[in-house]
Amino acid sequence: MDTLLACAVLAGQLCFGPQLAANDVNRGKELWEARCTGCHSLEANRIGPLHRGVFGRKAGTVPGFSYSTALKNFGQTWTEASLDKWLAAPGQFVPGSRMGFAVGDANDRSDIIAYLKSVSGR
């Protein structure tokens, strides 16, 4: 009931349930800065490839970054769905890839992805 009431105030939009609540880009930025910047920057390749533009980019194609063979051959473009699977369990989604860092919480993943989308001009 509370959820329905909360949804009802969203400018008259239809309520599809809490699972479709808008992603929080600001929270995603905080999560990204806390969890991802050990290896990644927006503008420079470091331990991992630069993140600006990652959303919508074909995997394994940042110039100047040395990818694993697995990721170079992956062939997919990074979307909400593929990034979600990647962040949930990178080694399972792309076996042979180097990244072992996983984000276990689905809400955290969706907010991080929303932030990455926002910095990718998408």
């Binding site: 800065e33 806390a34 969890r35 991802c36 910047t37 050990g38 290896c39 369990a89 990178p90 080694g91 072992g100 860092f101 996983a102 984000v103 276990g104």
Partner: peptide, 18 residues
Amino acid sequence: QRLERGAANAYLGVIPSF
């Protein structure tokens, strides 16, 4: 500070993958 926090979180985040 930023790098150390990132490193701490990176080491925690890879634990399930070992």
